[in-house]
Computed example of a mutant assay.
Amino acid sequence: MNINNSIFNIQSEADFKAIALDVFKFQFEHNSVYRSFCDLLYIHPSEVNSVEQIPFLPIEFFKTHTIVSTNKAAEATFTSSGTTGSVLSKHHVSDLEVYKQSFRSGFKSFYGNIENYTVLALLPSYLEREGSSLVYMANDMIEQSKQPESGFYLHDLEALKNTLIALEAKGQKTLLMGVSYALLDLIEAHSFKLKHTIIMETGGMKGQRKELVKSELHEILKQGFGVDSIHSEYGMTELLSQAYSKGNGVFDTPPWMKILTRDPEDALTIQPIGKSGGVNIVDLANINSCAFIATQDLGKMKPDGSFEILGRFDQSDIRGCNLMVL
Rank of each mutant, 00 (worst) to 15 (best):
N5C: 09
F8D: 00
Q11H: 13
A14Y: 14
D15M: 03
D15F: 01
F16K: 09
D22R: 14
F26R: 11
H30D: 03
H30N: 15
H30M: 01
D39Q: 12
S46F: 01
E60D: 13
E60Y: 00
E60H: 00
F62N: 00
V68L: 03
V87D: 01
K90E: 09
H92E: 13
H92Q: 09
K100R: 15
S102F: 04
S105R: 12
S109R: 04
E115A: 13
N116Y: 06
L123R: 06
G131L: 02
S132P: 05
S133T: 04
L134A: 01
V135I: 15
V135E: 11
S145T: 09
Q147Y: 03
S150C: 08
G151F: 05
G151I: 07
L154F: 02
L154S: 02
E158H: 10
K161E: 15
K161P: 00
I165P: 00
L183K: 09
H196T: 15
T197K: 09
E211V: 14
L212I: 06
V213R: 04
E216M: 04
L217R: 08
E219V: 12
G224C: 14
E238V: 02
S241W: 11
A243Y: 00
D252G: 13
D252Y: 12
I259K: 02
L268N: 12
P272A: 07
K275P: 03
L284Q: 11
L284A: 14
A294W: 00
A294F: 05
Q296A: 02
G299L: 00
K302E: 09
G305S: 04
I309Q: 05
L310M: 13
L310H: 02
G311W: 12
G311H: 10
S316E: 07
D317A: 11
V325I: 08
